[in-house]
Write a protein that binds this DNA or RNA. Structure first.
Lengths: 207, 207
DNA sequence: TTAAGATCCGACCGGTCGTGCTAATATCTC
DNA sequence: GAGATATTAGCACGACCGGTCGGATCTTAA
């Protein structure tokens, strides 16, 4: 690995940490350059623009997510246990990758939802790919008899992401000490492992 | 209403719209002043700082939310129907208030989760208050026999917010045309009104 | 060893940011 | 209508933004 690739990696590592703390809009050149002991123009030798830096940072974070959250599933039993593992690691992310702050992808959702450009496109594709991973895990769970036949993987993935998002809000923002147990309860209900009497909230109301 | 109060209202209306489009970090003085035909210092006569402007904007948005989403529940039948109404209007917000873009509160969650200060505090209190409203609606639903006795209002509110957050992601960011139907499905499952065979996903798996 | 090329710095550009101040103007009260 | 007050414009400051450029310094391969 040449010197260029080495410093590029150093920059990207610091950039991902910065993005976890301040989002992709917080990826300002001067502070980032200071963090790695360089100058702004030094960064520009590696990335030609701020947008390119954002995309590269997103890519680097995605690789980290892949190795820390998704890949370990290969070592777990196929079907629902694998889904359990991914969801559990997803809840810890990005902390379990040694990163400070919160998930940068969720920050990107807010920062790029009205804007457009390559960063947004890349982020959408990232979410779509991960969603597909979840859907395959669900389908596998159905095949193994862990989940009810006919389970809609798209609907399941939608609700799974909802739980992760709510955890981000309750734990990260509201600092609710009950966040984790509530998210786990909801996950248990989603996967049909809640006590039967808690599986649904309503009793007799029909609109 | 004096002239001061009138222009202050004009500014805040424009500020809420701006916050819907670009969040509270996007509340920059010059563009906002241009939008209402004033200069930056004109705004400064009304709010003494950017932070105060953000707080006032948050307050104004909260009042709008109260009147457009929460208050109409008074006209609905107590219990679950009232919860249906609030959730339905919440999904439309802020569009049903004539505002462009997305919910500014969700943007604030990302922008102020690591930061601290009066804006964050106000936003936390806002969410806590609304969560309490939801919990009371749930408790009322239990009393009316619409929801299973013993339903945990806190857990229910946690999952309800999860659905709204997922809708924000799927509809607003991912532009998923199936977002609405999936959110409604999930709401039906949460309130126990999904077809029984869809109420839970798992069949026999026990970890 | 040496020269080509990669790498990085320092200075600088045009803009925009939030924040102050003064002066002039509009509005309200008496 | 006069005086007090509230409101707004105009202007300037320092800090920071993304981006550019020439040249110094270091790697690397011949």
């Amino acid at each position: 690995m040449g010197k260029g690739a080495r410093t590029r990696a150093t920059i990207l590592t610091a950039a991902v940490e910065t993005a976890c703390l301040g989002g992709f809009d917080g990826l300002n050149l001067k502070p980032l350059a200071d963090r790695v002991g360089m100058t702004k123009s030094g960064l520009y030798a590696h990335f030609g623009s701020k947008e390119a830096l954002q995309v590269a940072t997103l890519e680097h974070a995605a690789e980290l997510f892949q190795t820390r959250v998704v890949a370990p599933a290969k070592l777990e039993a196929a079907g629902l246990p694998r889904l359990d593992g991914v969801f559990g690691r997803w809840l810890d992310w990005p902390g379990n990758a040694g990163l400070p702050g919160n998930c940068p992808f969720f920050a990107g959702v807010v920062e790029f939802d009205d804007a457009q450009g390559p960063v947004r496109e890349r982020l959408v594709r990232l979410f779509r790919d991960f969603r597909q991973v979840v859907e395959q895990l669900v389908a596998s769970g159905v095949r193994h008899g862990h989940l009810r036949p006919g389970t809609d993987p798209g609907q399941f993935a939608h609700e799974l992401l909802a739980l992760r998002y709510a955890h981000h809000w309750a734990h990260g923002f509201m600092r609710d000490p009950q966040a984790l147990v509530r998210t786990r309860n909801a996950f248990a209900r989603l996967t049909g492992r809640a006590p039967p009497e808690l599986a649904a909230a309503a009793t007799r109301y029909r609109p």
